[in-house]
Design a binder for these strands. Structure first.
Lengths: 199, 199
DNA sequence: GTCTATAGACCGATAGAC
DNA sequence: GTCTATCGGTCTATAGAC
């Protein structure tokens, strides 16, 4: 791979690229809800005919699948780059990484967090989320075992509370103005690990 | 009110009480989504005709309105019973109270947290939620001023993180098995105020 | 001519109005 | 109980950049 950053040369008739469609589609899904969004209304929002849309995606559900994979891939990537420090260090890395991914892929993660399991695609996404949670829970348990995290809270409850806090960011964070992602991650780490009370 | 626990004597043809209908309706709204639930399907789920349902509620939207009021009333009640201790004490009271209300009225609060503002009723509910948040934010600010809460985090961000954690409980908590509400509230207080790291 | 994106007519299924 | 609008999806042909 000589230049992986370079966009492949677009040939043929100009038009939407898959990613552009995906981005707008996710926005529409968030606004109207996935189920409530018809392919026709999606196409109209894109300024496309249905058939043109179906040239890029095999089905409405494939659009959802690719979008959810974007979010899940980002989160799972955080687990992969976790390194080999103490459980406490790894936990910090995962929390910070999750916040950064969430901000970076805000719309995709928002969509992911609204999935309720109404189809095979949604259920598969939920299962990947659960696997992510299980890994983090194991990390919390390890940190408790090494004595760096308090042991009077069930690791599964602790993980759910932590990620409840992290995930809730999609409900209010907007990139323009206010804090940037690194500052937000710092705040989350501070509350999650040391609490809001003055030391 | 001499005996608020006593159910008033039911007269006339037996049938659903408003609260029973409300409870089941909220369950259906959560399962299918409010917009996606037709009055016909709601009535069928209740084993009622549409006209019987409309005897109890003027409209589908009124069902939603009453349900959201149940959740919001519970949360606002926590603010009213806050007492006059230090800001730190009042903040603890609000957090614990919110967890208890959330567990007690789990379905109603779940519905409230899914509202996106698609109608006047929904927008009114969102505004009441925002008012609640503003009050809590002011409380966090007061606690920072009195020196009991760390001041290196914006009070509005801190409030959102705290209630992100609290609200996320509806996503996984189920009354049967596991912790009870008081234990859960204790865990939330512990993480929120003192953090997950070992002291 | 080759390649890609697009348009429009058209299915069968079905949910919801009447 | 019937009827119609809309649903997700298909097929064929064409428009436009190189």
């Amino acid at each position: 791979m000589s230049d992986p950053d370079q966009t492949p040369v677009r040939r043929g008739r100009p038009g939407y690229a898959r990613e552009q469609i995906l981005e707008i589609a996710v926005q529409v899904f968030i606004e109207q809800g996935y189920d409530a969004t018809s392919v026709a209304s999606l196409a109209s929002r894109l300024g496309l005919s249905k058939s043109a849309l179906y040239h890029h995606f095999a089905s409405k559900e494939e659009v959802l699948e690719v979008a959810l994979d974007e979010a899940l891939g980002g989160l799972e990537g955080v687990l992969n780059g976790v390194g080999d420090g103490s459980a406490r260090d790894r936990l910090e890395h995962v929390l910070r990484g999750a916040v950064l991914v969430l901000v970076d892929k805000l719309a995709y993660v928002t969509l992911l967090l609204r999935v309720r399991g109404n189809s095979d695609v949604e259920r598969a996404a939920l299962e990947r989320r659960r696997a992510f949670d299980r890994t983090v829970t194991a990390l919390v348990r390890a940190a408790q075992a090494e004595g760096t995290v308090r042991s009077d809270i069930d690791p599964s409850v602790a993980t759910r509370l932590l990620f409840g806090m992290v995930n809730s960011i999609v409900e209010w964070y907007r990139p323009s103005g206010g804090e940037g992602a690194p500052e937000l991650a710092r705040d989350v780490l501070a509350v999650a690990l040391n609490g809001l009370a003055k030391p």
